[in-house]
């Protein structure tokens, strides 16, 4: 029965069936906001070909990527340091854990006030949200380093920095990637929310504009683009993870 779980045919057939059903259902009278899949596909191709979509995609990416990079870099570095230096952990981690369940969007109005309604406030909110999962995972990853390995390395004459680089970092890496994956998903959620709340470009803005102009074709185009972007970036991260963790046994992911 191993073929059951690994096989992709069943879900693909289901998906195809759902699309066909959707198409058939839209043949009769339909609400304005329900478009048949074939028309959505045509609209997507049209928007890509006309160059209508590309500027919004680039605008979105120039907000999401710096925010993600900034937040997750700070999170990983501080998390690893906190995992190694006890005094630092005792000062910082209570604050991080306490504020972790707080929805970070609440800072958007404040950042808008301080940094304007431009890209800076959006990038900062995204960075803030990406910080937490990375910090927490890097912290636990570094703390979970087997002591025996650290002792052996010290015993064999490795300096503290070498131990950090050669022992703690590889041990923490699987969890660091787990944190990165959560952060990446969060960065897209916040990107589209902040763009929907206020922006003059980007996919979130495109969705809002299409919605208020009742351009349902454009609405579906932006949703497809958002989905594709989220999916593609997740795949890229998994690819990077596979390369970086090539030494780990397969299947433990």
């Amino acid at each position: 029965m191993g073929s059951w779980r690994s096989s992709k045919t069943v879900p693909l057939l289901l998906l195809a069936g759902a699309v066909v059903l959707w198409e058939i259902a839209t043949l009769g009278p339909r609400a304005d906001f329900v478009l048949p899949p074939t028309e959505i596909a045509r609209d997507v191709v049209g928007a890509v070909a006309s160059g209508e979509l590309l500027p919004h995609v680039t605008a979105s990416l120039t907000r999401a990527l710096p925010g993600f990079a900034l937040g997750s870099f700070a999170g990983i570095v501080l998390g690893l340091v906190a995992g190694v230096v006890t005094g630092f952990a005792e000062t910082v981690s209570p604050v991080v854990f306490l504020t972790y369940p707080v929805p970070k969007v609440v800072f958007l109005p404040l950042f808008m006030l301080w940094f304007g309604i431009g890209d800076v406030s959006k990038i900062l909110v995204i960075a803030l949200a990406c910080f937490y999962p990375c910090f927490i995972n890097a912290y636990y990853g570094a703390r979970a380093t087997p002591r025996l390995l650290v002792w052996s390395a010290l015993n064999m004459g490795a300096g503290r920095l070498t131990v950090f680089r050669k022992v703690v970092l590889p041990c923490a890496l699987p969890l660091v990637f787990a944190g990165l994956r959560v952060s990446l998903a969060l960065s897209f959620i916040l990107l589209f929310s902040t763009e929907m709340i206020n922006a003059r470009s980007g996919l979130g803005f495109l969705i809002r504009q299409a919605e208020s102009n009742l351009r349902f074709d454009l609405m579906y185009v932006s949703i497809v683009a958002v989905a594709a972007l989220g999916y593609a970036s997740d795949r890229l991260l998994l690819l990077a993870r596979r390369r970086a963790l090539a030494w780990q046994e397969a299947g433990s992911a």
């Binding site: 998903a185 932006s222 989905a227």
Partner: peptide, 15 residues
Amino acid sequence: YPVPKIALFPIFVFV
């Protein structure tokens, strides 16, 4: 899973 569901909000508003 990696698709941001928030993008569906405009459709949800219509439905």
